[in-house]
Design a protein around this nucleic acid. Structure first.
Lengths: 116, 116
DNA sequence: CGGCATCCACCAAGATACTG
DNA sequence: CAGTATCTTGGTGGATGCCG
């Protein structure tokens, strides 16, 4: 079985307004990352995403489901969310973004807040 | 000298809501593509982007300038917009998106329909 | 030519509280 | 546990008209 998601999986400032990329909605990239290692329940997602209100998380998950990136499966009392093949494909783009942002982070900072 | 931008550079339905990626704002990816082959004037950009109001185009350009992706240079009565090195780097990501969308277009279409 | 001013509709998204 | 229900706000972006 998969390891529980750590509460500090994401940086406090993630996502940042300096990042010019957006995927689906504000929290979708973080949700996708949480689902990378296998299906998760709503409560599991809330641990690393504790800054996100339940409503916002639900909205994000519903949209990901509508667009075919995530499936919502009810198993008795429990619910699990899982990546589809299409959704898993988004992770490649996400990795590319992260790489680009890391490589250009200083330039992004300098451009946004030029030294006097 | 660069060739004038064709009026039909972009598809009528571009950008589409089926594309889960966003760069800066709605029109930024198209603007960046217009600047790929060299500096352009405001009026030149308006040709392929005739569906975009002047205000929206200005807003997009201002934001791209603020974030360090584009420079705005006044040359007497004329104004030219040009990609910075950082902005040119965005084109790589844009290419990656286009490739991904083309490869997954049918899946995106199929996935969107089933849900109410 | 290269915009700006104004008004307005839409919706993403947060705060807060509550529920089957 | 897995969400809903309201309320409210801020920002994007379209429509229209005007300007130096």
């Amino acid at each position: 079985m998969t390891v529980p998601l750590p509460a500090d999986l994401f940086d406090e400032l993630c996502p940042s307004s300096l990042v010019p990329f957006r995927m689906a909605d504000k929290w979708a990239p973080l949700v996708l990352r949480c689902l990378e290692d296998g299906p998760r329940r709503f409560g599991e997602l809330r641990v690393p995403l504790r800054r996100v209100t339940p409503k916002a998380l639900t909205t994000s998950l519903r949209r990901l489901e509508r667009d075919g990136f995530v499936t919502r499966v009810v198993e008795g009392a429990a619910v699990r969310y899982e990546l589809t093949a299409l959704g898993r494909g988004l992770l490649g783009q996400l990795d590319a973004w992260c790489t680009w942002v890391e490589e250009n982070w200083d330039a992004l900072l300098d451009a946004r807040d030029p030294l006097p």
